[in-house]
């Protein structure tokens, strides 16, 4: 036996109505233990109302070197924002 328990990523919903947010990670033998341990270490002071745990190997991330390629194009598309459009002052509630 003697191999390491897998690594899990922990996500906490701070309160109802908000998204789960990444809080950190921990090792556990299975999902139930991961939730139990996450509860013990990450929510000792009312940090949240719900927990998600995901085995870290199942999490896929974008490559930081691709960041420009992926996210840069959004910067010059200012027409995606409401402030791009000129309206006369008389127009209200838009």
């Amino acid at each position: 036996m003697q191999s390491e328990w897998p690594l899990w990523e922990v996500f906490i919903r701070p309160k109802n109505g908000l998204h789960h947010i990444h809080a950190g990670s921990l090792h556990a033998a299975d999902a139930a233990m991961a939730i139990q341990n996450a509860r013990d270490v990450y929510t000792r002071r009312n940090e949240g109302v719900s927990l998600w745990v995901v085995e870290s190997v199942h999490l896929h991330a974008s490559d930081p070197d691709d960041a420009d390629m992926l996210f840069e194009p959004a910067k010059d598309k200012i027409y995606r924002h409401p402030t791009f459009y000129d309206l006369p002052d008389e127009v209200k509630h838009m």
Partner: peptide
């Protein structure tokens, strides 16, 4: 304990 938890999982 570590071994038992792993075996259980």
């Amino acid at each position: 304990v570590r071994e038992a938890a792993q075996a259980y999982a």
